[in-house]
Design a binder for these strands. Structure first.
Lengths: 169, 169
DNA sequence: GAAATATGTCAACATGGCTGACATAATTAT
DNA sequence: ATAATTATGTCAGCCATGTTGACATATTTC
């Protein structure tokens, strides 16, 4: 029989290790881009906007709001700065001329890729340190953490961006 | 030979999936406590303070600052509210009477445990959905994401809190 | 032509970071 | 014993980024 004092947690004892590791890992994960962005006078909010616009060229403002789960006023502030400084452009929708479809400029793409490279370096280091199959395991774990309702939408977003990106390559 | 157009990523293509899953997973992960805290008039900052104080009873203010990587002024604001409202108490250090050692009150512990239970529920759901060994895999992945310099310190902090918690049980 | 939609903007406010300066009490070093 | 250092707290103000509410404009749909 199992030794109940060893591996078995006390009744409903929280999973302290993963709770705290998620906190520390995420803190470190965003610290690299944060540092780089600060040298441009940008913050985390700019990063998020630029990231998703770069990944999903031609996305609608409404879609971005939905992804970021912030208000249009909050978005407006950082988006305006990104547009004014030439990192993002807005083009009138062809079908629907009310839409202002978002695109990263080459300058914007360069910055987005540079930031993604920082995060990729950290992830690659982690994956290299552990065995093969870690990428899949990490993907499965993170996916399972998502709200069940929003899960499919997130996965669709990622898959769709991957497809269009590969198509352009 | 491998089909280079399939699994092999293009040259230095970022790990988009994990980058984005980390963003979405963390967003959802903190959303449960955020919602609960809002009903107490508290925010994420209060959560972090209460969490670590509850996990490390008798910790020094300086240690908490080191963990959270914020300034004493930022800490002071939320800590004062937690103390004033009876969630945390400060006791003079026995050896060094300059220290104000931090302890969660029973009220504070109750709230901390309630928030931890929310996060644990999400993690448990994810782990149950995946195979056994997922807890270990997740722990290894998150640990590997940490800054190498701070890694040992984080692991020591978690291990030490676990030990003293078990000792009290 | 009216209603709904996509977007933008103004104003005001809250949270939680930050810097800089200074204060107090207690400990440690000379 | 005095001086320097340490642990902590506090005041004042600034910044980034979130919020709500109200309103404006252009365009599309009914």
């Amino acid at each position: 029989m199992a030794d109940e004092t060893a591996a078995a947690p006390a009744v409903d004892e929280p999973t302290w290790d993963l709770i705290e590791l998620l906190f520390f890992a995420y803190r470190d994960f965003v610290s690299d881009p944060d540092e780089a962005l600060a040298r441009f006078g940008f913050g985390r909010a700019h990063h998020r906007v630029l990231h998703f616009v770069n990944r999903n060229p031609g996305m609608k403002v409404a879609d971005l709001l939905e992804i970021l789960k912030i208000t249009k006023q909050s978005l407006g502030r950082v988006l305006k700065q990104l547009v004014d400084q030439g990192y993002v452009v807005q083009k009138e929708g062809e079908n629907d001329r009310r839409q202002r479809l978002l695109y990263a400029t080459s300058k914007g793409e360069a910055l987005a890729m540079r930031l993604a490279a920082l995060q990729t370096a950290r992830i690659a280091r982690a994956l290299a340190e552990l065995g093969p199959g870690t990428h899949d395991a990490a993907r499965r774990f993170l996916t399972a953490l998502l709200d069940p309702e929003g899960r499919d939408e997130v996965l669709r977003l990622i898959a769709r961006a991957d497809r269009t990106r590969r198509a352009r390559a």
